[in-house]
Amino acid sequence: MQAVIRLHRANNYGYNLDLMILRNIFSDRTICKAVAAIILPLLLHSCAALKEDYNSECETGVKIKLQVAVNVNVGTGVNTSVDIDSSPAKVEKFYAEVHSVKFFVFDSTGTYIDVWGMEGKELLQKNDYTMDIPLGKGFYNVVALTGLEDTKYIVPTLTKGVSTIEDLNVKLERDAQNHQDKYLTPLWTGYTSKAVEVKEFSLTPIIIYVNVRKLTNTVIALLQDLSGKEVLSENYDFEIKADNGYLNSRGSLMPDDTITYSAYLKSNEQIESATIARAEMNTLRFDAKKNTRFVVTEKNATKADGTPKKILDINLTKYLLLTRSLYEGKVGFKLTEQQYLDYEDEYAIVFFLTPTGKVDDPYICVTININGWIIRLNEFEL
């Protein structure tokens, strides 16, 4: 069997290859060797041409992959993966909650290059949350943000070649009185802890891992009167007060006004013979060093001195951290206070209220239940 190979260039990145079969000159094996010797260098040349044209459809070999992390302050880079939360429940929650993701890419100096994103059907088709990015040789910083389809998250418009990574931030929308009472779409964020080097295009994909953590929290508060008296949610205002509505590209809190988060959902629940009040609230990232207040106030009621009649007014983060050591004993590893607050994102808190008979201070709370852990407060009056 014989073959003559006729080659002509079709465009900047590809070639058309014609084979005219001529019998009785070359063997099939010889033909295969000849074709391979010609095609392989051309394929490498085609992909190398991408260095000068980001709009080409040729595969670049650079991928960015999201992973759920315990602590994203360390361990992000090329083809490395550490501090990953392998809890199936946590990973499943991530997949269930995230409906869009944006990758903001900066150069080694922190100057903005561009943003790429996936959402909707594309995410469902690529549920490993890995995206091909056309990056040439160089050093890059990557910031990932999810949930930006929620217009309550305000992100500035960045200018290519001008804006920097310090210009990327997320500010929570609030009214003129710094009040927020809406459900917040889960906000996850992650970043590369240092500039990642992409050396060259390769047939073997270069994977840049970005470990993400969740920055939104849900607090479900329940009030139960231990005397059996019904507690109705419509008779109370539930609020979280925190200055945590402004975050930089690394998810750290920036100076902000105190936001009052009110319940976006209230209901009354029947447990055996008791009617208890239930309220759900969202807030952004808890800071272990800040005094985040949880306040429950009786509506249309004041004390003798004219001040609102508060049922509860506590340092919320302090109480949440009471369960940290219990949780560490369960999972078998240590977490700092901030790591624990970042690791958990949903808190169900039951306040067991004992009537005092006092008009101005109608209850004391000596027992609370946080995510199933019972905390006894030794006659601590709230």
Rank of each mutant, 00 (worst) to 15 (best):
L7K: 12
H8T: 09
R9I: 01
G14F: 03
G14D: 07
N16A: 08
I21C: 11
I31K: 14
A34N: 05
V35Q: 02
V35N: 10
L43K: 14
A48Q: 14
E52Y: 12
N55C: 09
C58S: 07
I64T: 04
V74E: 11
G75Y: 06
T80A: 14
D83G: 06
F103M: 12
F104A: 13
I113L: 13
V115I: 04
G136T: 14
F139E: 14
V142P: 04
V162G: 03
I165W: 00
V196R: 03
F201P: 09
F201C: 12
F201Q: 14
S202Y: 06
I208G: 01
L215C: 01
T216N: 01
N217M: 02
T218C: 05
L223N: 02
Q224P: 15
G228E: 01
G228M: 02
K229S: 12
V231L: 04
V231F: 06
F238N: 00
D243G: 11
L247N: 13
P255N: 13
Y261T: 10
Q270I: 07
Q270K: 15
I271N: 11
S273Q: 13
T283A: 00
N291P: 00
K303D: 06
A304Q: 12
D313P: 05
L320Y: 05
L321A: 00
R324S: 08
L326D: 13
K330N: 09
K330W: 03
K330C: 04
Q338C: 10
E344F: 06
Y347M: 04
V350L: 15
T356N: 10
D360T: 08
D361L: 13
D361Y: 11
C365P: 07
T367H: 11
N369P: 02
I375E: 09
N378P: 04
E381R: 14
